[in-house]
Structure formats: structure tokens, C-alpha cells
Amino acid sequence: MYTQGKYPIIAKKAIAKGMFDLTVLCPDVASEAVPGQFVQIAAEGFFLRRPISICDIDKDNGTLRLVFEVRGKGTEKLSELNVGQNIDMIAPLGKGFKVLSGKKAICVGGGIGTPPMLSISKLYGKNATAISGFRTAALAILQDDFKAAGVTPILCTDDGTAGVKGFVTDALKAEIEKEKPDIIYACGPMVMLKGVAAIAEQNGIECQVSLEQRMACGVGACLVCVCRTVRDGKEIFSHVCKDGPVFDSKEVAFGG
């Protein structure tokens, strides 16, 4: 079943410039949710809901964490929600990440693509490395959360103000050279995903990517949220909300 309901916000933190971290009490959703899925949140005064990834799932306490960046007027409105207020969401949506239990994973997050990497890396704990890239130190998020989960974090910044200077793809290559993982997870800008997918393919490593597209229904009925994928050697339009947001990187037609 899908649920649509209003759920109380029980914690809110500003974790970086323009980035917010909400904890929502929603036991019915938390009990069903898996890493990689997302929710559709209503922003007061806006017609369409905003898709936001599930950052963390706490099944014991029945909560979800949602981490988002203010990108426009809708997310700005969401950032005004406070503890005690309700959040109207449809959840949990989409297909989550494939999990290889007991194996080694590298999770690669670019900017606001980092949040979904937390819940999946947690399933691997010390068997996971989380590489995250941000433009600058002030935008870096979730590094302590990775550490707390036993995951090895590797922070990259474009300008070198924190962690390693450079791109996540360079850090990924270096990590693979050290120890080849069984699976790579990635979420972030299309160019980054394309780079990660290419590295995975060169090294013969399975790779799961989480894609973004503008959405309306969020459940697979309206067909607006397309991405190009390959099935039986033929390019088709799949729908990010229902067929994804997680895809095997080999299925995605990155183009160019």
C-alpha cells in the first residue's frame, strides 16, 4: 500500500548553508521503507509535491530523516516547517537499492545526492566507504553520520576547503585500486553518475544509480518523469518514480 498522510516533525536542524534535516514520526511508512526510496512532500501554496529522498530510516522509533537543500520557492517553503508541525507526504515511493549483504560497498554522493547514501551505507557499516563531494566546506553534510554508522567517509571539495581537493570520481578510482568493492551506489548530478558508471563498468563492478526528474504524481500514473533506459538493446523511456529512482547503471542511457 501507499500511504498519504500528515506526520509530525519531531526534530529539525539546519546542517549547512540552506540545508535542512527533518525527522518525521511516521511508523507506518518507516516500517515499510527501504534505502533508495523517496517521499513526495506537499509544500503549502504549491500545486505539485516535491520529491525528497529518504536519508535515514529508524524502524525502532518509527521515524524517517529527510535532508534537503533550498533550491527554489517550494523547498524554501518546506524549510519554514518547524518541530510540532505536520508534513504532508506520500510515501514510501519508488524502488530502493539492491543490497548484497555481507559484501563491500562504495557509496558515492554528489552534493544533495549525498542523503540517500546514508541509509544504504548503514546496511554495510564497516564494509562501506562513503565518498561525498561538495563545492566547498560550508556545504559538506552528513560526514559525522557516516562515521557514527561505522562507515569510512571520504570528503571531497571542489575548492579544497575541506577533505581532498577534487572530484568524487578521482577518489572512487583511488579506492577501487586499494580494494575492489562488490557494488557501487551513486546519487548526484548526471555528469557525476555518468563518470561513476563508466568507472564501474571499466572495473567490472555492479553499480546502482539514483536518478532525478521532475515529477507530478510520484507513483507511476502520469508518465511525466522520464529517463532514457535501455531494455533488450532498445532505448525506451522509463519512469523515475516507479521504475526507479534507482536503476542499474547499465540500464541507463546517459547520452553523449
Binding site: F46, F47, L48, G74, Q213, R214, M215, A216, C222, L223, V224, C225, V226, C227, I236, F237
Partner: peptide, 20 residues
């Protein structure tokens, strides 16, 4: 039919555009 290339939706005041 494959339909059109994305994005296929744009929000508008009290509504939306689609080009499925």
C-alpha cells in the same frame, strides 16, 4: 508510442503543464 523527451512537466500557479 514512446512519448516526448523529458522534462515533461512544469509547475504553474495552481496547476501544471505537461508534454507527455
Amino acid at each position: 508510442r514512446m512519448g516526448n523527451e523529458g522534462p515533461r512537466v512544469a509547475e504553474t500557479p495552481s496547476g501544471m503543464l505537461n508534454s507527455v
